[in-house]
Computed example of a mutant assay.
Amino acid sequence: MSTNPLLKGTLQTIILKLLEDNSQMYGYEITQKVKEITAGEIKLTEGALYPALHKLEAEGLLETFTEIVDNRVRKYYRLTEEGGNGVASKLDEAQAFIDQLQLLLNLKPTTK
């Protein structure tokens, strides 16, 4: 499955959560982590990922820095203090949406 259109509304939340769990990541690393976690079912394209990263950065939730790795400049992303504080509320919003979607579609809730 390529990038799922349903993913668009949750991409920022996914990015924030990955950065909370991994402290700093570069773009390709984010795409590979999503692919790994979902066993290849969700594949982020650069066209979806980078606009989301840039929007989060413009909103002050992410900051960037560069490092030289194998003689190449690599741009890393990490949460700002504001971004770190916002992860929990984004996750709560996502869970509330999932709960409402399950009601609307009459899906069985997953067991935790």
Rank of each mutant, 00 (worst) to 15 (best):
D92A: 14
R74I: 15
L16Y: 02
A52P: 08
Q32T: 15
D92P: 01
Q100Y: 09
L49M: 01
E29I: 03
L56A: 01
A88N: 09
E57F: 03
I15N: 04
R74S: 00
N22I: 00
L62Y: 06
T110Y: 11
Y50W: 15
V73T: 12
Y26E: 12
T38F: 10
A94N: 00
L91I: 14
V69H: 09
N106K: 15
E57S: 06
L44T: 01
L56M: 00
I68H: 00
V87W: 01
N22E: 12
T64L: 01
Y76N: 05
F97W: 13
T13F: 03
L16T: 02
Q12K: 14
P109L: 00
L49Y: 02
I15M: 07
T13K: 05
L44S: 03
E81T: 12
D70K: 13
Y77C: 02
E41R: 14
E59I: 02
R72Q: 09
P109D: 02
G40H: 05
T64N: 07
L107K: 12
E81P: 04
A58V: 03
P5I: 09
R78N: 05
T38M: 11
R74F: 07
L61S: 00
E93V: 10
K108V: 07
Y28G: 11
L16H: 05
V69C: 06
K35I: 02
K55T: 14
T3L: 09
E41S: 11
T111I: 12
Y28D: 13
L16W: 02
N22T: 05
Q12W: 04
G60F: 04
L61N: 04
D92W: 03
Y76S: 06
M1K: 13
I98L: 15
R78W: 04
M25L: 15
G9Q: 03
Y77G: 04
